[in-house]
Simulated scan of single mutants.
Amino acid sequence: MLIAGFGTYDRDRHPRTGIVLDGFRDLGDEVVELDRPLGFSTAERVEMLGKPWLAHRLATRLVRRWAQLTGDRLRLRGRRPDAVVVGYLGHFDVVLARLLFPRTTVVLDLLIFAADTASDRGVRPSAKLRLLGVLDRLAVRCSDVVLVDTQEHAVMLTPTERRKGVVVPVGAPDAWFAPEPPPAGGADGPLRVLFYGLFTPLQGAPVIGRALALLAARGADVQVTMVGGGQDLERTRELAGPDNPLVTWHEWVEPDRLPVLAREQDVCLGIFADSGKGLRVTPNKVYQGAAAGCAVVTSRTPPQERALGDDALLVAPGDADALAEALGSLAADRARVLELRRRAWARADRDFRPARVAAAVRPALTRP
């Protein structure tokens, strides 16, 4: 099959589309990527859509990228792809894909809904939120196949849209996979714990902050690395305590360095929010942490239980004490840590490789 990746997606910021396309390559398909990254973050896009005095920046850059993408179509040398995969955050790009490839199966890697993301980030019911809802519906209408990451997101499609929906786990890029499972045996030194992210509400970072304060008060033998920034960062640092000796904060780690950093840790933290979007997703970091050979500690939600089963340590959402207790217990039981690391890696190797992700998409490309 000839698969065309299409749009303004950014593999570094949002690896999901790259995972799907790499998976098709691993399955033996020919993949051509027509990709012109827009260069705006999700937060910037949402902000510009709601502020007319900023929206022109989005429109201007989008028009330029679309002109480039239209020219890039020549790289197909007149061949018609079997499917066009529009990358994540492609709500606008899928309209152009539909126009340029009117008789081709158009796959939108929707993953999550724009209106739901904006609501999670604090946008109250408004004209802005309604506009994003209309944009979600338009994007789905222009697609033949719509990829979402969990069953909880699939049911957010309308009844008439659900025939297009395919639930596909996010998975992890090949670069994240440790070459082999962690070795058996003991481990010395403090328990090494990693969290990285954009500190958005769905991640529940303040819950981690409260847990870090509890761990410090209990004298736990842990060393925590916190990477990233966003709207909940200041509150998280405040809750953790300004002089917490267990924590090192980093505003940024280069994308190609992050998998290396993860493989140096014992534990990768997932998300811990107890409402809204946090209960509907399984985040990138859970798949990536497992691939890196970390023990995964995250919240006990239906999508994460389905993704990880018994191969992770799950705690009640929103419960800082439960998180602190879980990390403290792992610090005191290194044999269990190594068991969880090996089990997480084995599940990732079996279920989260790009080829497994693409294999879940493939049947939808040939259905009537």
Rank of each mutant, 00 (worst) to 15 (best):
D243A: 13
D82H: 12
T105C: 14
D310L: 05
L49I: 12
V167F: 09
G278C: 11
V281E: 02
R353F: 13
A240H: 02
L99T: 09
T17Y: 09
W66R: 13
V167I: 08
E30A: 06
K128M: 06
R367W: 04
D109S: 08
A291Y: 08
A115Y: 00
L308K: 03
F199L: 14
I3W: 05
R103L: 09
G39T: 05
D174F: 00
G270F: 12
L215I: 06
H91R: 11
L269K: 00
L191E: 07
I271N: 15
G133W: 08
R80N: 02
G228K: 00
A127F: 12
A211L: 10
P169V: 09
D274P: 09
G209C: 07
V107R: 06
G278Y: 10
P159Y: 05
R11D: 12
P363E: 08
R103T: 12
L330P: 12
L27T: 04
R343D: 11
G185R: 08
V84R: 01
A240C: 03
I19C: 07
D29T: 00
L129C: 03
A67I: 11
D116G: 13
C268E: 11
P15N: 01
A322V: 10
V134D: 07
A211S: 14
R336M: 03
R16T: 15
L365C: 04
Y287T: 00
Y9D: 14
A118D: 02
P102A: 10
R124M: 06
R347E: 02
L58D: 02
V140L: 14
A355Y: 13
A205K: 05
T105Y: 02
R263V: 04
L108S: 04
W176Q: 10
S299F: 11
A118R: 02
L215H: 05
K285L: 00
Y287G: 00
W176I: 12
G228T: 04
G78Q: 02
L246V: 03
L110R: 15
A346G: 07
R45D: 08
V84I: 08
P303H: 07
R356C: 03
D109R: 15
L21Q: 08
T8K: 03
A358P: 06
R121Y: 07
L2N: 01
L327C: 04
G39E: 05
L233M: 13
G189M: 13
T248D: 01
E238V: 00
G293A: 03
V107P: 07
L365E: 01
